[in-house]
Design a protein around this nucleic acid. Structure first.
Length: 458
RNA sequence: GGUCCCUUCGUCUAUCGGUUAGGACACAUGGUUUUCAUCCAUGAAAGAGGGGUUCGAUUCCCCUAGGGACCGCCA
């Protein structure tokens, strides 16, 4: 059975790269009818925070990336990690190292000065007698061997063990480090495919060595190229617009972000649009690309625009209201009703949910500052506008054809083009030149409000 | 600096040695349109460089250049 996992450390919000890693793991496991697990790597007590853990889980949920079972906490398995370290010690595959951090710092500086790559010298390797001093436990990496990482994305990568140091398994306070914990946990939860960022490639080799020392079955590894920022560097948490929250905040739909992430570093022929079902159906590991990719915000927006247009009304309204609730000034019930009813008109120019909000603002926030400044409202134009108002006042209820009749009447009477009437009308009714068509504006505002607004300015 | 990885339009990518090198976003032009958009059509735009292998290389190999990742008692 295929078992994959996403293993974030809760030291920050879920960022784009992590989200894509989670997505690939999720999609592959679901495509194979397997399991997708979430493991919180919270062994760094200083930097881990509960709020980030919650944030990561809710971001995953938002993207529709659902994990199986309960989330797993690495910190709960610490005893087992320590046991394995002891077992390795017993098998003589690990040893106690009494070097102090200060000594190591010195070693590091010395080699760096010489321009040589630093790895721990291994000087404690052969200490026979126990010392009554603080110690760490290090893995005894075999010398002069080649380890091949059979990477499903990168191909076979051969690494000399001499370039890999005797890395620490247990710190001097007895707590396990990442490579130990991750290996033991992957073994415990029977991970079959490890899909993660390229930055873990060297860790994979370290973990393979540990797996072999323990006679465990080594999982398959897939190291996906990193996502780079516009500047071409690894996307860091500090970059603006690097977390999923950043995108949520500006009104990107989860399905759009998910679709974007899926196609970043992965492809399926010429297909660009993948809904959630299709993404599971078509996803595979072999189409993952080898080269890193840059984030393209325009593409995200355009995908978002596509989904705003193609989502059904109900889904769009749901997404919109959730968004407004979380990020915008709350709206009155009747405004919400008006927007919901006319969502198909109001979504027209929108690339983001925030745009829909802005497009709708003439309904709930009648900003007259531009109207007063506009030279569209002059004595000449007022003649038609008054005609229009008079004719409009004769109508009892809104009706498409009646509005057309009214405007045509005014146009004929004054011998003008629609633009001459439409522009000032639009300005008065919405306080802006960018708005839906006149008919739609009247329909949304209602006859009463339309007449009220007209009367204020003519 | 050491080890490892990557390199097709500006960006994301397709290409299983033979293609007018395809698609998408962005861009430009034109058309539709009751503003602005949408939509439709068209266009410009790419194999980092140099060597091999081959009848033939974007594709396979080597070198160079450029970019990136890792090099913590972080994960």
């Amino acid at each position: 059975m295929v078992i994959t996992r996403f293993a974030p450390s809760p030291t920050g919000k879920l960022h784009i790269g992590g989200a894509r890693t989670a997505l690939f793991n999720f999609l592959y496991s679901k495509n194979q009818n397997g399991k997708f697990l979430l493991r919180i790597e919270d062994t760094d007590k200083k930097r881990s925070e509960k709020k980030f853990e919650n944030q990561i889980i809710s971001s995953l949920r938002w993207l529709g990336i659902n994990f199986d079972g309960q989330e797993i906490y690495q910190s709960k398995n610490i005893d087992e990690h320590i046991n394995i370290a002891k077992e390795l010690l017993k098998r003589k595959k690990a040893y106690k190292c009494y070097c102090t951090p200060e000594e190591l710092e010195l070693e590091r500086n010395e080699t760096k000065k010489k321009g040589i790559n630093y790895i721990y010298s291994g000087k404690c390797r052969n200490i026979k007698d126990e010392k009554n001093l603080p110690f760490v436990i290090r893995l005894k990496v075999e010398k002069n061997k080649k380890i091949t990482l059979y990477d499903g994305v990168q191909g076979d990568v051969e690494i000399e063990t001499n370039t890999i140091e005797d890395f620490i398994l247990l710190r001097s306070d007895g707590s396990p480090t990442y490579n130990l914990s991750a290996s033991v946990d992957d073994k415990l939860i029977k991970v079959s495919h490890v899909i993660r960022g390229d930055d873990h490639k060297i860790n994979a080799v370290k973990q393979i060595i540990l797996f072999r020392f323990m006679d465990w079955k080594v999982p398959k590894y897939f190291h996906i190229p990193l996502i780079h920022s516009e500047s071409g560097k690894k996307l860091s948490k500090r970059e603006n617009a690097s977390t999923t929250d950043d995108y949520k905040k500006i009104g990107i739909l989860p399905i759009a972000l998910r679709n974007y992430l899926l196609r970043l570093g992965w492809s399926y022929k010429d297909k660009e649009i993948f809904n959630n079902e299709e993404s599971i159906k078509f996803f595979n590991l072999k189409n993952i690309g080898k080269s890193p990719s840059k984030l393209d915000f325009e593409r995200i927006k355009s995908l978002n625009e596509y989904y705003i247009k193609s989502l059904n009304e109900k889904e769009l309204i749901e997404n919109f209201l959730l968004y407004v609730n979380e990020f915008k000034q709350s709206l009155k019930i009747d405004t919400i009703e008006k927007i919901s009813k006319n969502i198909n008109i109001l979504k027209n120019k929108a690339k983001t949910l925030s745009d829909i909000y802005d497009n709708s603002s003439f309904i709930f926030k009648y900003d007259e500052s531009l109207i007063l400044k506009s030279n569209l409202i002059n004595t000449k134009n007022k003649v038609y506008l008054i005609d229009f108002l008079n004719e409009l006042s004769k109508i009892n209820d809104y009706c498409d054809t009646k509005i057309t009749e009214v405007s045509e009447l005014v146009l004929k009477k004054n011998n003008i083009k629609f633009k001459d009437l439409g522009q000032p009308l639009r300005m008065i009714l919405t306080g802006s030149l960018k708005a839906p068509s006149i008919k739609d504006i009247i329909k949304i505002l209602g006859l009463n409000e339309t007449i009220l607004r007209l009367k204020r300015h003519i």
